[in-house]
Design a protein around this nucleic acid. Structure first.
Length: 791
DNA sequence: GCCAGGCGTATACCG
DNA sequence: ACCGGTATACGCCTGGCG
């Protein structure tokens, strides 16, 4: 049968590569326009690195490299090309190698030549290099000529093709219909965290995007659970496998458990094993493994990232509360086992529900920054920004700098004003739109426009940053200026278009997700510029940006004062002023003209309360909502008793017009609450204090309650890693706080030192607000206690 | 021996 | 493994003190 060529249009889901028969090949996994699952094999793309010679020795370097080719046998070609490095045009030598694994080694060897300044781009992974070089993007459509392969590699797809050319990006209305499978496993462990070599997987609940739910339950041998799940994955053949904590926990567990049991767990499209890959994600070749947890980590509003809380945040079905340590009691009791099954099914539904909100965003982010869908969530923000920059650099012929180790040296940041403590009426919050990106654009602040003092020339025009005096060329537009202008422009265009769309339409959802992705990258760009790990790190870039930021806000303040606006507070790029509509209007206009930066009214508080502290306040919005910033209410390391009391106190103090009456109401409320608390009439969960473990336990220098609680958990068989949160309560008894801490599930309300919660949690949280209005601790205690406190 | 005050450590927040 | 600025709690040490 003759092979025939055809045009293929496909959407790129996953990419990997093989090095077989001394030939590297790229494998592009995707979905065709017709909805077929396809594998496109691209042979003949050889990776490369650049050699930057001293510019008067280009030919000489070339000859030296040619002479080395006998030893460096993987080199298949060398070529002198023109590129830019930090904006400066250079002649460089492109060294192409067959085996991508040798790049770093060859680059190191060639770097030793005295004619060579440095080597570049030897440290970019082959599959990423392929995409950047050919402008191929994950989660987008491409077309190319292909030839069908009949005797292809083992792959669970409808067709395998050989690429006959480089794929070209094409525009299509939307993403293909993806087959999504949500899964949630349950393990049985009586002693702490489940261990794959010891504890069985008693259930795996699944739900697919067609609404089919299946649950695999152990009948005493969990091999059946894993086998059933594995077979089902192969049968349903999902494009996306979505879970909650699947990267850190579940997939590794299932892999290890299948090893222990000697049962097959090949859920990839190649029949190979899943494996840990870039940025710590688990790669399921041919499919995209998406862990919702990776995306939820960035949502600051969810304090404790349980599936229950995440589902609640997204407004989807949430599972009933069964905690990990309770699982054996459900499994072992025949009358409760059914409930555990329902719980697992609920978890899979919650995951699918949350996924339908998050996947659009993940897809857009993946397409924007160029990191494949399965690890765009695990890559830290800095790397997301960086891949976006790498893609943009390639389009401009800019070489990608090496990653180098540097010492950490802090530099000054933003200005925060002292607030005027007390209760204020009608306060407008005015802020600059994307201040740092706007500064970088306005003053052409960029790694390639920065001119060190010794290179300053009379003939050139510079922007000079205040305070720090760093100089940036006015022309031509720098790398950051170009990239940021495009990001902001794209986002504004999308936001404009969204106004004309139905919020329920798929197009709206996709575009809204797109504008959020653009926002993430634009907002992180200043942080990236000051990150010592950044490839494009130039300290003066970050230093100048904050210096212009400080100057901007200072000038804004003085204009406000000149115009007679009453200033209440300000932080970085915002000022809070008494809202006088006409004055504010002309103020905005004046600032916009004088500073060449757009300032706008962000919101107007009907009423707002400031204490003496910076970065902490609460305001009442026109729609009646309470906006709490920085205070205990929004801090995850205070127990709910304190947070709830403070929220209620704020509500009373902001909603009641008569300040004196508000004060009395608040005092009565707190007093009543305290007496209930003392009687133990509060939910036990409201007493739990959650704190993050930020490092391995043995690395702590200080003693603290959460660390002691963590030690107790470890002793009981729980595994705790940096990033985990420990929930503990303070018990009655003698000694330091840390001597009286206990993991919450090892104690009950009868053991709890309620007096500690009164004195050290509820009262401080309430007084944080009330002390501004002259309320003292004794006002919140009973008369007798108050008197005693007074004496 | 007690304790107030200062300092260091730790966490989580703001923009 | 994104920045600096900030608040706050608790542990621990130290100097003053009949």
């Amino acid at each position: 049968m003759p092979f025939y060529r055809m045009k293929l249009v496909f959407w790129l889901l996953d990419i990997n590569y093989e090095f077989a028969d001394s030939e590297p090949e790229i494998r592009l996994w995707g979905i065709s326009e017709e909805g077929r699952r396809v594998l496109v094999i691209h042979r003949g793309f050889y990776s490369y690195f650049y050699v930057v010679p001293k510019q008067d020795m280009v030919q000489e370097t070339m000859e030296k490299i040619e002479n080395m080719r006998g030893r460096l046998s993987q080199i298949v070609g060398t070529e002198i090309v023109e590129r830019k490095y930090f904006g400066k045009p250079l002649k460089v030598i492109k060294v192409v190698c067959k085996d991508p694994a040798v790049l770093e080694d060859y680059a190191k060897k060639i770097s030793k030549l005295e004619q060579v300044e440095r080597c570049l781009e030897y440290d970019i992974r082959y599959s990423m290099k392929y995409m950047v070089d050919n402008e191929v993007s994950p989660c987008s459509w491409h077309e190319l000529e292909v030839e069908e392969v009949k005797e292809g590699p083992n792959a669970q797809v409808d067709a395998v093709y050989l690429a006959k050319e480089v794929p070209r990006k094409v525009e299509r209305e939307s993403s293909p219909e993806l087959r999504v499978l949500a899964f949630y496993p349950i393990y049985y462990s009586k002693r702490g965290s489940p261990k794959p070599e010891r504890d069985p997987v008693i259930m795996i609940a699944t739900l697919n995007s067609s609404g089919e739910a299946k649950i695999f339950v152990s009948n005493g041998d969990d091999s059946e659970v894993i086998r059933g799940f594995t077979e089902y994955v192969r049968e349903y053949d999902p494009d996306v496998i979505v879970g909650f904590e699947s990267n850190q926990k579940h997939l590794l567990y299932l892999k290890e458990r299948s090893k222990t049991l000697g049962v097959d767990f090949s859920i990839t499209r190649t029949g190979t094993e899943i494996h840990t890959s870039a940025y710590g994600h688990i790669s399921i070749t041919g499919r995209a493994n998406v862990d919702l947890y990776d995306f939820v980590e960035d949502i600051a509003a969810i304090k404790l990232k349980t599936l229950e809380n995440v589902a609640e945040y997204f407004g989807v079905e949430r599972p009933r509360r069964i905690r990990e340590y309770e699982i054996p009691s459900y499994w072992d009791d025949p009358s409760k086992r059914k409930e555990l099954k329902e719980y697992a099914a609920e978890c899979s539904r919650s995951i699918m529900g949350v996924a339908s909100s998050i996947l659009d965003f993940a897809i857009q982010l993946s397409e924007l920054v160029g990191i494949p869908l399965d690890h765009v969530g695990t890559a830290a923000v800095g790397f997301k920004v960086e891949w976006y920059l790498i893609k943009e650099a390639h389009k401009r012929g800019e070489l990608v700098p090496e990653r180098v180790e540097r010492p950490y040296r802090p530099y000054p940041g933003a200005i925060v004003l002292e607030p005027k403590p007390g209760r204020h009426e009608k306060i407008a919050v005015l802020d600059f739109k994307s201040m740092y990106p706007s500064i970088m654009i306005a003053y052409n602040v960029s790694p390639d426009t920065y001119v060190p003092p010794e290179e300053i020339k009379e003939s050139e025009d510079y922007y000079i940053a205040p305070e720090v005096n760093h100089a940036f060329r006015k022309e031509p537009p720098g790398f950051y200026k170009e990239v940021l202008s495009e990001l902001l422009k794209a986002r504004n265009q999308i936001r404009e278009k969204l106004k004309s769309l139905d919020p329920e339409s798929p197009e709206y959802r996709a575009l809204d997700a797109r504008q959020k992705a653009l926002k993430v990258i634009a907002n992180a760009s200043y942080g990236y510029s000051g990150w010592i790990g950044a490839r494009w790190y130039i300290k003066p870039v970050a230093e100048a940006t904050t210096a212009w930021g400080r100057a901007t806000i200072r000038q804004t303040i003085s204009i406000a004062k000149e115009m007679g606006l009453e200033l209440i507070y300000g932080d970085t790029d915002s000022i809070f002023v008494k809202y006088e509509p006409d004055k504010v209007k002309s103020f905005l206009k004046s600032v916009g003209e004088k500073l060449r930066m757009e300032i706008k009214v962000d919101k107007v508080y009907e009423r707002v309360i400031f204490t003496e502290a910076k970065k902490r306040y609460a305001g009442l919005l026109p729609d009646g909502r309470l906006d709490v910033v920085g205070l205990e209410v929004v801090r995850g390391d205070w127990p709910d008793v304190a947070r709830k009391v403070q929220r209620r106190v704020l509500e009373i103090m902001l909603r009641e017009e008569d300040l004196e009456r508000a004060k009395q109401d608040a005092i009565s409320y707190v007093r009543e609450f305290i007496s209930e608390l003392r009687e133990g009439k509060v939910p036990y969960d409201d007493l739990i204090i959650w704190k993050e473990i930020t490092r391995p336990i043995e690395e702590y220098k200080a003693r603290g309650a959460h660390i002691e609680a963590a030690k107790m958990m470890i002793e009981a068989g729980w595994e705790l890693e940096p990033g985990d949160k420990v929930g503990f309560v303070i018990l009655k008894g003698e000694g330091k706080l840390y001597q009286r801490a206990s993991p919450y599930f090892m104690a009950s309300i009868e053991d709890v030192d309620l007096e500690y919660y009164v004195r050290n949690q509820v009262i401080p949280a309430a007084l944080r607000i009330l002390s501004v209005f002259g309320v003292k601790e004794e006002d919140l205690l009973s008369e007798r206690e108050g008197l005693m406190a007074f004496l």
